[in-house]
Simulated assay, not measured.
Amino acid sequence: MPRTTLPAALVLGGAGLIPFLGLSALVILGQPLAGLAPRPLLAAYGAVIASFLGGLRWGAAAASPEGRGADYGVSVIPSLIAWAALFAPAPWDLRVLGALVLAWGLVDQDLPRRGLVPAWLGRLRLVLSGVAGLTLLAAGFWGTV
């Protein structure tokens, strides 16, 4: 990441990947976490993060002088899809969430191009969404049900 990336964003963003990596590994290995099934924990965390990603667009729209209504509408899509994914049977819950997180990393690339967020945030989002989405997909394809 370039020097203009805020260190806190790098550290906190990276820390946010720990549950994705750990829980996905447990799902794939079929191992519980302190007696709890890791799949619903991973799905819940994925849904929360997907909602957070929508909130990023909402915040960018609110901070923008023009505050385009379309951005507000688009910003609720991840929350709605993530909520629906929680009702999907395994393995589709994690597959939908993985595809959503990956896709949303790309969807949000218009924000830095439009000057609504710093360029470094667009690059960071690609990396974070890539890792998070791929771990969800890996657990959804190779994990135990």
Rank of each mutant, 00 (worst) to 15 (best):
L100I: 08
W120S: 01
G133L: 11
D71G: 04
R3T: 12
R113L: 14
P7T: 08
V101P: 02
R125N: 14
L6R: 14
V145L: 15
W120C: 04
A44Y: 01
L56F: 02
V48M: 15
E66W: 05
G46Y: 06
L121C: 05
P112R: 07
W142P: 07
L136C: 12
G105K: 04
V27F: 02
S79V: 12
R3G: 13
A34D: 10
R95K: 14
A85C: 03
A63Q: 04
P2I: 10
G59D: 05
T135E: 10
L100T: 10
A60Q: 10
A99N: 01
G46S: 02
R113V: 13
L10T: 14
L29S: 13
I18V: 15
A34M: 02
G13C: 06
I49K: 00
A90G: 01
L26K: 07
V48Q: 03
Q31A: 14
P78G: 08
L6N: 13
G69I: 10
P40A: 11
L6P: 03
P89S: 12
P7E: 06
F20K: 05
G59V: 05
L126N: 05
L36S: 03
L6W: 08
G143D: 09
L100V: 12
G133F: 12
L126V: 14
L106Q: 05
L23N: 01
P19E: 09
L36P: 01
A70F: 13
W120I: 11
P19W: 12
L29I: 06
L29G: 10
V107N: 05
